[in-house]
Design a protein around this nucleic acid. Structure first.
Lengths: 360, 360
DNA sequence: GTGACAATTGAATCACCTA
DNA sequence: CTAGGTGATTCAATTGTCA
């Protein structure tokens, strides 16, 4: 099974994952069933109070088997996941606490829990509980303190009107044209996830070309959004009917233009330019004076790209920190050079250097 | 220990609970240590230091020792709880999954998980994850399919502007006058909960005269709100200083005026609709063109909701400001999409989104 | 008093590369 | 592995200061 990609595979997810090469997947999105062994409709979300007696004796037994099931598919996920990879799991209060605890026990490291806040949830008709208006997602890396992992911070900030993205996401449930229907008009799947949710997940924690795996593929929302966003994917689905519907759905997905897949990136992604290179290339000359924005501090450029204020010598960062008595300082934004129009941060020169050298 | 009530008891919560009469409590609210596992120091971009939770009471050797601790206090809670009673637990992703699973294993029956959506959470200063903007509460009865239990559906509906109360609550963190301060101006407790949160909990799931127990009483928010709402209470707190401050606080509590509560309801509770949400939900597609009203400027939509005009990229606001050479710009009114009837501001799409999603 | 502006702060698993 | 250097990074509210 090499170079298998962009398919929906029919079968048990543990079996199928164990036949995939290890450390081959960048990101897993898993929407596991809630009610394995719990007696069908009785424990479907929001109906858990229907039966009086059965749940009582069933409870321990069913939690145990659910835990075992969870442990097994998470172990299979862990094997196929790259050491730089991550996993998302979505669930409700019926199962998410067990899944989250087992995830932690398996060695995954939770980065955030994220709340999918539904704009248009089903009402609780009986008025016996709060309206169940959200689901919980867990985002976890394969290892504690894992470096690197993918998080497109700046893209999400642009998405969110220039504010950093929060852990609660307001997204509509899947309805209308997007919802897959059978010829008789009934919905194909009871819990089809909205493409908007997967769009945000993939935008946040994957890159174009990444391999995305969904072990409980269902109607193929993960696969469909992966295809649209220029990611590779493997979906695994046990149910032949769901698999058939999702393949048909995928055939209708048009990938977006490569140019539109690009996202906002921040300074962290830019190539490093040592300050000395600006001096070397004549953007600044030894002896030039630099100033803090307020002109309160002044320093002279030296031939090796260090600065001196007379008493002390150091890098742009060290001297900036020193004169401010701060533990650290970004010299690029702290120091300014004299321009026709007044003081300009030396970061301007760095940008000019990058552009003229064809960097970034 | 009979008829002990309306007190803060100093001591280990398991010891104290085991000395209380069994089946004597109507509702428990528990805010256990979160086991945050913080690393080194954290500084803000302005170099100031974040005052994190490094207290001894939040230190555990391992998940195992935390699980054992959790199991023990939950067992003690179970004993003192009436068969008609219920429990609330609050936590974050560090601990809530373990607590939820152990709660289920102990025989409690989860009714809802509730999200406390913070209006003013602390940012993620380093841009490494999503801003941790919520905490999770679990509401569970003592038994599966328990009847009766207390749920004041109508009171909540009235409280929530005649809308059914959802499972996500928008409430500010505890600051300002409400936050207890030492004589030196420092906060008494690192994690004091807002009274608005407890107000909703008690309003929803307790009755006047009920006995409310908080095994991790801290600064006594549960006790204070219980007193204000005419409930009886017992708070248990290990730390002598916290206990002293909470007793002093209680002496000042008077019955509530609802208007004073800092909760956010109705339309104001609805989060902003960011531009990216229109893209992920299909109101605009990556590759679509946007124009300024005069058509003098043009840009393309990308998957992260950023715009590009070929040279420059940025959010709708950033790019709008850039092309106009303005310091700032409201992208919602500056950029337009092509409609049958000509150009329409993208703000129209946001309004449509809000309307269709029932967001005010 | 008042309005503008600056300073402070909150349950936080918060950088990364090279020598 | 550690140590050290470079240089990237924040939102909403309340409180305090100064004109």
């Amino acid at each position: 099974m090499d170079a298998l990609e962009n398919v929906i595979i029919e079968g048990d997810c543990v079996d199928v994952m164990n036949r995939l090469p290890e450390s081959s997947v960048d990101l897993i999105f898993a929407d596991p069933p809630y009610n394995l062994q719990l007696g069908g409709d009785l424990t479907r979300p929001d109906n858990s109070e229907v039966d009086g007696v059965k749940d009582d004796w069933d409870q321990f037994d069913s939690f145990d088997s659910y835990d075992l099931f969870t442990h097994e598919w998470l172990a299979a996920c862990r094997r196929v996941l790259k050491d730089t990879g991550a996993i998302w799991v979505i669930g409700s209060y019926h199962n998410i606490f067990r899944v989250g605890a087992i995830l932690q026990d398996a060695g995954f490291w939770i980065m955030n829990d994220v709340i999918w806040r539904k704009t248009n949830p089903m009402p609780n008709f009986k008025g016996t509980r709060f309206q169940n208006a959200h689901e919980t997602l867990i985002w976890a890396t394969k290892h504690p303190n894992q470096k690197p992992y993918t998080f497109n911070y700046d893209a999400l900030k642009a998405f969110n009107d220039d504010l950093q993205m929060r852990s609660d996401w307001t997204i509509p449930i899947c309805t209308g044209q997007e919802r897959l229907k059978k010829p008789d008009g009934k919905k194909v799947h009871p819990t089809q996830k909205p493409e908007g949710l997967l769009h945000r997940v993939l935008l946040a924690t994957s890159k174009p070309g990444d391999m995305i795996l969904d072990p409980f593929s269902g109607t193929g929302t993960t696969a469909a959004v992966s295809k649209a966003l220029g990611r590779r994917f493997i979906g695994i689905e046990q149910d032949a009917s769901y698999a058939r519907y999702s393949r048909e759905r995928l055939s209708r997905v048009e990938p977006y233009d490569d140019a539109d897949l690009k996202t906002v990136t921040g300074k962290k992604a830019e190539p490093r330019v040592p300050f000395g290179a600006l001096v070397e290339s004549g953007y600044l000359r030894p002896g030039d004076r630099l100033f803090s924005a307020s002109r309160r501090h002044e320093a002279r450029v030296r031939i090796d790209g260090s600065l001196t204020n007379g008493d002390t010598v150091g890098s742009i960062h060290r001297l900036g920190a020193f004169v401010q008595r701060a533990p650290s300082c970004n010299g690029w934004t702290f120091w300014h050079f004299e321009d026709r129009n007044g003081l300009m941060p030396i970061d301007m020169l760095r940008r000019k250097f990058r552009t003229q050298m064809g960097l970034g």
